[in-house]
């Protein structure tokens, strides 16, 4: 079980509550996190990444609770997180930025430097390793963010809308990278792109208005709509969200 949340409540302000009592155990393998805008996908990943502390309840991974000081570092070493907005660091090269992310995740300077090149090769940015981060395109920045997540060899990778704004070719390449990355670790990807869900992911978690509308294998998600590829995922999505409404 990669990450689980038990009885979690969380709000940005008192009048902006996102979760009241969330129970969720992410399935193993590659999981896609779906849901309408404002459903709480990014907040959920933020909780899972230990960016936020839940107001109530508990987040855990392999028995480690990031709210506990003694568990925090080990928990964070297990979890890699790519935020929705990947920022380039002016003055640093692509490789340096990835190495910096690895260093922050507890790797030694040498290990982070070595690992950065491998991570960049994985996301097909090896040829741009010495380029300034500030000169990357939008798609390249997304891949840089993924490399930052992969560099420290996390057991669970959380990707927050990694394909937003990418063209179909770039999305396809990104999916291939995610598929490869998911071979030896758990990957949880928040996205609105559902055309490739059946090919890339094993499981689905659907959030709607701060509640889990569905969590389980892809086959179960599309059971009522038949095996028609992306169309059936879209129908299932609509059906689940509509039911909730």
């Amino acid at each position: 079980m990669p990450i689980s949340l038990q009885g979690c409540g969380f709000g940005y302000r008192r009048d902006s509550i996102v979760f009241t009592d969330l129970d969720l155990s992410f399935p193993e393998g590659r999981t896609v996190l779906l849901g309408p805008n404002g459903a709480g996908k990014s907040t959920l990943l933020g909780l899972a990444a230990s960016l936020f502390r839940p107001d109530r309840g508990r987040v855990s991974c392999q028995g480690l609770d990031p709210a506990r000081r003694r568990d925090r570092a080990r928990y964070r070493a297990l979890v890699g997180w790519m935020p929705q907005c990947v920022r380039p660091l002016p003055g640093l090269t692509v490789r340096e930025q990835v190495g910096y992310a690895g260093w922050l995740k507890g790797m030694s300077r040498r290990a982070a430097w070595r690992g950065s090149l491998a991570a960049l090769e994985t996301v097909e940015l090896g040829s741009l390793a010495d380029r300034s981060c500030a000169r990357l395109s939008g798609g390249q920045l997304r891949r840089l963010g993924l490399a930052q997540t992969l560099v420290h060899d996390a057991a669970v990778i959380l990707l927050d809308e990694p394909t937003a704004g990418l063209d179909p070719n770039q999305r396809h390449r990104f999916d291939e990278i995610v598929t490869r990355a998911g071979e030896d670790r758990h990957v949880i990807v928040s996205t609105h792109q559902i055309d490739n869900v059946t090919e890339t992911y094993d499981s689905v978690v659907l959030l709607d208005e701060g509640r889990v509308a569905y969590a389980g294998p892809l086959a179960g998600f599309t059971a009522a709509t038949g095996d028609r590829g992306p169309e059936s995922v879209e129908d299932a999505y609509r059906r689940h969200v509509a039911q909730e409404v």
């Binding site: 990444a49 964070r76 660091l89 992310a101 995740k105």
Partner: peptide
């Protein structure tokens, strides 16, 4: 404020 605020906020090292 510079750096990678989100990544540093989830860092293992005491950023």
């Amino acid at each position: 404020q510079a750096g990678l605020p989100d990544v540093e906020a989830t860092a293992v090292r005491p950023a």
